[in-house]
């Protein structure tokens, strides 16, 4: 059963990887990459690394590839295909890919494929091998420095993304501005749910109504006064 599953997922993984570069439509290439990543997750499962498998699907297939799908669906429909580069670019691509492939092949064959040779005498695995508990423990003891460095890098990337994506009100030519906590609170009168329920908008509308009424009242009284004065003047004139 394990062998069947292995070859099934291995074939699907390779087919997906070939699909990424062979398909013309970028959207389909992205989908082929998703298939490849899910097949890799299957291989992780066969290696008892269920946590890594789940993380692979959640992080790569679920989060990273979603972004790719997003972008290629937005702009990729009539975008460039891999054949549209210049002749030099294509030659360079084949050269680089070829040399990388050679290095990988040397590494793989250099190991003498020992994994295949002693498939029958695998070490017995301790309980909980590859589980979340064991990986967590390793991350916080043996690989603590690398783990913390990676999280610091990710944090910097997240902060950078927030800063870059921030809405600029008066064009791009804006000087450096410190992001304050108050920026997270929407300004009054933007029609948020809170304003709707707490009555800020309604209160503003009523205030405007009152103001309008007052202005109208003032204007009518002023007009009335002017009319009265005119009438009085007329009366005076009539008397004289």
């Amino acid at each position: 059963m394990t062998e069947v599953l292995f070859f099934l997922s291995a074939i699907v993984a390779i087919a997906g990887a070939v699909g990424v570069i062979a398909l013309k439509n970028p959207f389909n290439s992205v989908l082929a990459l998703v298939v490849h990543l899910v097949a890799l997750a299957m291989l992780f499962l066969l290696l008892h690394s269920e946590f890594i498998a789940a993380a692979q699907v959640v992080v790569y297939a679920g989060a990273v590839m979603v972004l790719y799908v997003f972008v290629s669906a937005y702009v990729g429909e009539e975008g460039e295909t891999w054949t549209s580069g210049g002749r030099l670019q294509r030659a360079l691509a084949f050269l680089l890919a070829g040399s990388l492939g050679t290095v990988l092949l040397i590494a793989m064959l250099g190991s003498g494929l020992r994994g295949l040779a002693d498939a029958g005498e695998l070490p017995t695995l301790e309980a909980g091998f590859g589980g979340a508990a064991q990986i967590g423990e390793l991350l916080l003891t043996r690989y603590l420095l690398a783990f913390e460095a990676a999280s610091l890098l990710l944090l910097a990337a997240a902060v950078g993304a927030v800063l870059l994506a921030r809405r600029r009100e008066d064009g791009i030519a804006e000087g450096p501005r410190v992001l304050a906590v108050t920026d997270l609170v929407p300004s009054a009168g933007t029609g948020s749910m809170t304003e709707g329920t707490r009555g800020t908008l309604a209160a503003r509308a009523m205030e405007a109504d009152r103001l309008a009424e007052r202005v109208i009242a003032e204007r009518t009284s002023a007009a009335k006064k002017a009319a009265e004065q005119a009438e009085a003047k007329d009366g005076d004139g009539g008397g004289a």
Partner: peptide, 23 residues
Amino acid sequence: GIGPLYVFALGSIAFYGLVLGGF
């Protein structure tokens, strides 16, 4: 042994159902 992570992993597969359907 990965409990909720299994749910989230399959949730991200299901997500492709929606996106592919839409696209």
